[in-house]
């Protein structure tokens, strides 16, 4: 039997220690991703991580795969070019909640509509951490942040619901507390062709937790754990209860053909030909 690959094939140990705060779940999420890649035995040179800007946008610093660190909100747009430039690649777009849904919201909905073969892994900590804890499009209504000192006046986006409505092939939500499940969802998303989304509910004791969750990192993790409920339990809840929780699990799993397959079929694209040798 062949020796199983280790997450160390993908994880850049010499970059340790992680730059993230104690109690932040980004390290857990990074381990889940690198474990999933190892389980799938995908050679590191066939993987590109495309990151945005923000705390989670620093993830590429810890990856030994090909890496792309671009501009705020554009990980999917850069990733689209990367994928279409070399369709054999596994492209993982690592984005935070502000990255994916505020400044990058347009790319997010169109990547899903188009069904481009990219896996979006969203670290949702309900806040802009790196800039000092301002409210984001996923901050729950009335929660406090540095730019909503008495509570945010906007309702939050449902990341997974949005991805589903826009046409993503695979949509799953887990948390940095449910590590095994998180890894399983990420592996499934990477294997699935088309646009796939894994939302990882993350902890931010430094900003979000400090203003909204009594206690410290442990309580913050407890909050995330209690916030999430599996589909079976969630469906039995009344509307009021549902509003206080986030459903976890595989929420979409289908096989709509991805953008490039459709494009190549419609345009009868032969294999890549040399300069000037088109039809």
């Amino acid at each position: 039997m062949a020796v199983k690959l280790s997450y160390r094939e993908y994880f850049k140990e010499e970059a340790l220690p992680l730059m993230w705060c104690a109690g932040c779940g980004n390290g857990i999420l990074l381990r889940a991703i690198t474990d999933a890649l190892a389980d799938l035995e995908i050679p590191p040179h066939q993987v590109v991580v495309s990151t945005g800007i923000g705390c989670w946008g620093k993830a590429d610093d810890y990856m030994k795969t090909h890496g792309f660190h671009g501009s705020h909100g554009r990980a999917l747009a850069f990733g689209t070019g990367i994928k279409l430039g070399n369709p054999d690649l596994h492209v993982l777009a690592l984005m935070g909640d502000g990255d994916a849904l505020a400044i990058g919201g347009n790319h997010f909905i169109h990547a899903a509509r188009r069904n481009i073969d990219i896996t979006a892994i969203i670290s949702n900590n309900f806040t802009y951490g790196m800039t000092g804890g301002q409210y984001s499009p996923t901050t729950p209504l009335s929660y406090k942040t540095t730019t909503s000192p008495v509570g945010v006046a906007e309702p939050a986006f449902d990341v997974c619901g949005l991805a589903e409505e826009c046409g993503a092939n695979y949509v799953a939500r887990s948390t940095v507390y449910h590590v095994t499940q998180l890894k399983r969802f990420i592996a499934a998303a990477i294997q699935k062709k088309g646009f796939t989304v894994v939302e990882a509910i993350n902890t931010c004791p430094t900003h979000f937790g400090r203003r909204n969750i009594p206690g410290d990192s442990v309580e913050m993790m407890e909050y995330v754990k209690n916030l999430s409920v599996p589909k079976s339990r969630y469906e039995k809840m009344d509307e009021e209860e549902k509003a206080k929780h986030l459903v976890t699990g595989e929420l979409v799993n289908k096989d709509r053909p991805d953008f490039l397959s459709v494009y190549r079929e419609i345009n009868s694209v032969e294999s890549e030909s040399g300069r000037g040798e088109g039809k």
């Binding site: 495309s50 792309f68 671009g70 501009s71 554009r74 747009a77 850069f78 990733g79 689209t80 070019g81 990367i82 994928k83 279409l84 430039g85 070399n86 690649l89 347009n106 790319h107 169109h110």
Partner: peptide
């Protein structure tokens, strides 16, 4: 693409993929 921001991003991405 959905806008020119994404267009410029995509050509940079494809460039690094060798195109």
């Amino acid at each position: 693409m959905e806008d020119e921001i994404g267009s410029m991003a995509a050509i940079v991405g494809a460039s690094l993929s060798g195109k």
